[in-house]
C-alpha cells in the first residue's frame, strides 16, 4: 500500500503541476470567478449546508444519540443485574456454607452427648454392681467372723472342761471352775487365739 501511495503521490504532484500549467492556457473552471454559476454554487452550498446542519443537529444526531444512550443504559442495567445476581448468589453460598457448618457442629455435639450419656450409664451400672458385691462380701465376712467367734467360744468351753477333767484325773484335786477358766484364757491368749 505504502509504495503505491508514494508512487501515486509523486505522479500526482507532477501531474497537478502539469494541470496547473495547462490552466494558464485554457483556464481552470474552478478559478473562473466571472462565471455566474461559480457564485450561485456557493449560495446553494450555503443553503444546503445550513439546512443539513440544522436537520442533523436538531433531528438526526439526537436520534442516534438516544439510541446509543439507550444501549449504554441497557448494558449498564444488565451488568448491574448480573452484579446483583452474583452478589445474591455469593450471599446464598455463604449462607449455605454457614448452615452446613452449623448442622455439622450440632451433629457433632449430639454424638458427643450420646457418648457421654452412655459412658455415664455404664459407670453407674458398674458402681451399683460393685456396691452389691461389696455388700455381699461384707456380709460373708461377718458371717465368717460370727462363725469363728462361735467356734472360738465353743473351743474355750471345751478347753476349760477338758482342762478341769485332766486336772481332776491327774491330781485328784477338784480344780475350781474360775481358776481353770483363767488358765485357759491365759494359754489361749499366749497362743494368740483368744
Amino acid at each position: 500500500m505504502r509504495p503505491i501511495g508514494l508512487l501515486a503521490a509523486a505522479v500526482m504532484s507532477g501531474l497537478s503541476s502539469a494541470a496547473l500549467a495547462a490552466e494558464e492556457s485554457k483556464g481552470m473552471p474552478q478559478l473562473d470567478f466571472g462565471n455566474v454559476l461559480t457564485k450561485s454554487q456557493v449560495v446553494w452550498l450555503a443553503l444546503i449546508f445550513f439546512v443539513l446542519y440544522l436537520l442533523l443537529s436538531k433531528w438526526a444526531l439526537p436520534k442516534v444519540g438516544t439510541v446509543l444512550e439507550k444501549r449504554a443504559s441497557t448494558i449498564a442495567g444488565d451488568l448491574q443485574a448480573a452484579q446483583t445476581a452474583k452478589t445474591a448468589a455469593d450471599a446464598a453460598v455463604a449462607e449455605l456454607t454457614a448452615k452446613t457448618r452449623a448442622a455439622q457442629s450440632g451433629a457433632q455435639a449430639e454424638i458427643a452427648g450420646a457418648v457421654e450419656a452412655a459412658k455415664a450409664a455404664a459407670t453407674a451400672q458398674a458402681a451399683t454392681l460393685n456396691a452389691r458385691l461389696d455388700a455381699q462380701l461384707a456380709e460373708a465376712e461377718q458371717r465368717i467372723a460370727a462363725a469363728r467367734a462361735a467356734a472360738m467360744g465353743a473351743l474355750r468351753q471345751v478347753a476349760g472342761e477338758t482342762a478341769a477333767v485332766v486336772v481332776t484325773r491327774l491330781t485328784g484335786v477338784h480344780a475350781s471352775q474360775p481358776s481353770v477358766d483363767a488358765a485357759v484364757g491365759a494359754a489361749l491368749a499366749a497362743r494368740g487365739l483368744a
Binding site: 449504554a72 448494558i75 449498564a76 451488568l79 448491574q80 448480573a82 452484579q83 452474583k86
Partner: peptide, 15 residues
C-alpha cells in the same frame, strides 16, 4: 473467570 468478565464488562461500560 465470570467475576473477571463481569468486572471487565463493567469497566468497558464506564461503571
Amino acid at each position: 473467570s465470570f467475576e473477571e468478565r463481569l468486572s471487565s464488562a463493567r469497566r468497558r461500560q464506564g461503571l
